[in-house]
Design a binder for these strands. Structure first.
Lengths: 156, 156
DNA sequence: CATAATTATATTGTGCACAATATATATAAC
DNA sequence: GTTATATATATTGTGCACAATATAATTATG
């Protein structure tokens, strides 16, 4: 028998499914990333830096922010921790002193080879097919795009 | 031209799509929840408590942990903040003194009526249909279930 | 019933997220 | 060129997440 408050039932909500699935995936990453000494957000930053290194592009803090949807309050301390471990360099631009350019070091690039094993190992043994993974990823990307382009939630 | 490191391309990864979509959804919740003075994790806790209240069930800290996949390190301070604001009560069980039972107060229940408006407002204006929302939710629930039942990531 | 093992919650410490604000530099308007 | 505005990063403070450990109470074992 449906009650008036079914709209508030936890299991009916997209948001909780998303929240729980996201944490389950990052929890699954955690032991794999620990092998190369990275947290999950640090791993995402290194993915961007590795790709930029490959493409011969430079990456500013604001580029990381746009790509990962993170602000300086998150990135600045995270990047300092990576710099403390010599995985990245932080260099203030001489032409425009507001800008800080981030690069992966040799040591940071050395992790890339090990990291390549990780995506394949992640869903291994879960019975989630590549087709299903790609379909879910694309649907999430599409939803993200709609959420980001369609302005504020209405109702006011 | 595909490179060797496409497996590490940010946009190819399910995990990043999940991470970004989750944060976009909670960001969309934020202003709505602010109207009733809750953070997103606090809202999830209240959803569980409201549902239990309706069903005449009692909720222990460990029940919240199982349902929301959160541990006491997250829940204890969160529940204290809710208790400080008289939205919940924390009562140590007299029969088994290890147990703490959490209940929504009158004041906490009063928020439920306002909260019922929120799910409907959330995706409003995004062009995401109810059918699509339900399909994505169910796929995420299915993936979560597989991640939680299929043991550790292999590769060792 | 004494002791070991288990269970339930709490505490501490680290690392995100994000709002709000600060600081410094650069560009635009006059 | 001086002032106003915008841009880029940093800082501070709050609230999760989660690992590791602690504490206390319960149950199981001998």
């Amino acid at each position: 028998m449906a009650t008036e408050d079914d709209v508030l039932a936890l299991d009916n909500q997209l948001c909780f499914a998303l929240y729980a699935a996201n944490r389950a995936v990052t929890a699954r990453y955690r032991p794999l990333l620990k092998e190369i000494g990275l947290t999950y957000p640090q791993y995402l930053v290194m993915l961007v830096l590795w790709q930029a290194d490959q493409d011969g592009k430079t990456v500013r803090v604001s580029d990381l922010g746009k790509r990962l949807r993170l602000d300086s309050g998150t990135l600045t301390p995270l990047l300092k921790r990576l710099a403390d471990r010599d995985l990245v360099t932080r260099q203030r631009d001489t032409a425009d002193e507001r800008v800080v350019t981030i690069s992966s070091t040799e040591k940071g690039n050395a992790l890339r080879r090990q990291a390549r094993e990780i995506p394949g190992r992640l869903l291994c043994g879960t019975g989630i097919s590549e087709q299903r993974r790609v379909a879910l990823r694309d649907e999430l990307r599409s939803v993200l795009s709609l959420l980001e382009t369609r302005g504020e939630p209405s109702g006011r």
